[in-house]
Design a protein around this nucleic acid. Structure first.
Lengths: 233, 233
DNA sequence: ACTCGAATACTCTACGTCGAGTATTCGAGT
DNA sequence: ACTCGAATACTCGACGTAGAGTATTCGAGT
């Protein structure tokens, strides 16, 4: 059990909307889209309807009425209960005050980085830099003189994401440089493993067994496949 | 279908390990833990075994033998196939070269920020700053003179995470300041909605409808519960 | 000789999520 | 009067994941 009865952040957005005024689910999705919360809160129908259900069963929202306009399918209109109000405030407070560790794809990639040869990695990271530059440029275009420029309060999430994008870009550039000019600590060993013999990178991804510098590869206890390792595929 | 046959990054770690040498699942988990990849790749048994299964059925790994030592349960030892090798390289290359948008809890929180009154938000964010400081200090302690200090290559993920933590802290501090000294654009409206009348923040979370300044709260179309909203909890 | 906790080595299931699919209706154009 | 695409308003099932639970075994201590 994940502490909250409903843990998907989408539920928080739903509560937020229902604090404003009663709505039916489809309107919630439309509204979130219009206010481009989609950029910061994952939204899809499956999750939306199941989240609304769960909020109901836990008494955080209640159905106010069921109406049908014209020949459209029926729609159930929900409103927040006092418990729902409280949950919203408590949950939002938690999100704002308490950082949680989140796993990113790139982090996973970095931690296995020695699995590819240094020069290739440098090229790949350079591609990453290009992508990041494009994304930054695009976000400039959206928030700049072109689009509606609202006060900062209303695009505060974008600002946050932007700051991280910039850090990411700067950090990645530095890493590329450090690989290219050979100043990255440990690169000697890394390069050796990818040139001297086929493609053994045993324990190179490790971080265990500091390997006291000097004493080549003698202690690596790996007999198996090696000569024909690269020829395949 | 998510492009890759197996999409959990844990599978990438498994392939990485099996490139080094054949192993059984439990040993994989032990090894990942020892090398503290747990910090960057989510690891739990359920996922591990199901990921290994899927890798098998897709021909990316194969079972080499099944052994039993002493009275311990049987263990199946797996090794990577050539297809698995290729998948590893391709996947890792993608992770390193192509940034993907990931949704964070905090971002979600930020985007709903006007749901709480400015002063409370400032306090909450300050708490966040304290947490971030602690985390940074802790990571210093681990990587600093105390722990084993390996070459940078081996804690590159940590370095990356650290950079983002620092950005996060700086950014959050700035925001707190801007709220406190009232220099955040839009804070007037925000504050007004939380003081003039109870706790209406209608369309304040929006970013739609710029609201041409002047024309108090006349247009807010919300009658419901209001006086007793804050007294609860 | 016995205890008790840590480590070994998984299994199982409830739960959440994703997103393609469906069926209808409205409105702009010809 | 008709067409055709966009919007409305959801449903459904396959899939992935979390993590508590289970059962055993080893080793340190008394």
């Amino acid at each position: 059990m994940t502490r909250r009865k409903v843990s998907n952040p989408l539920a928080l957005a739903v509560l937020s909307l229902l604090r404003e005024r009663p709505m039916h689910p489809y309107e919630m999705s439309r509204t979130l889209r219009q206010r481009n919360k989609e950029g910061s809160i994952r939204l899809n129908y499956g999750s939306l309807y199941s989240v609304v259900d769960k909020l109901m069963t836990h008494g955080l929202i209640e159905s106010q009425e069921t109406v049908r306009e014209g020949q459209r399918p029926e729609r159930t209109i929900y409103r927040a209960t006092p418990a729902g109000q409280a949950e919203f405030e408590d949950w939002l407070a938690e999100l704002l005050s308490t950082p949680v560790k989140e796993y990113t794809q790139f982090e996973a990639g970095l931690s296995l980085l020695p699995g590819l040869p240094p020069d290739e990695v440098a090229n790949l990271l350079e591609r990453r830099c290009e992508h990041l530059e494009e994304t930054l440029a695009a976000s400039d275009a959206v928030l700049g003189p072109g689009g509606a420029d609202l006060p900062r309060l209303y695009w505060i999430e974008w600002d946050y994401v932007r700051a991280h994008l910039e850090t990411d870009l700067a950090w990645t550039r530095r890493l590329v440089r450090d690989i290219r000019d050979g100043s990255l600590e440990g690169i000697g060993e890394w390069r050796r493993f990818h040139t001297t013999d086929a493609d053994s990178d045993a324990r190179l991804t490790s971080g265990e067994n500091p390997a006291p510098e000097g004493d080549p590869a003698s202690q690596t206890p790996r007999p198996p496949r090696k000569a024909n390792a690269r020829k395949a595929t």
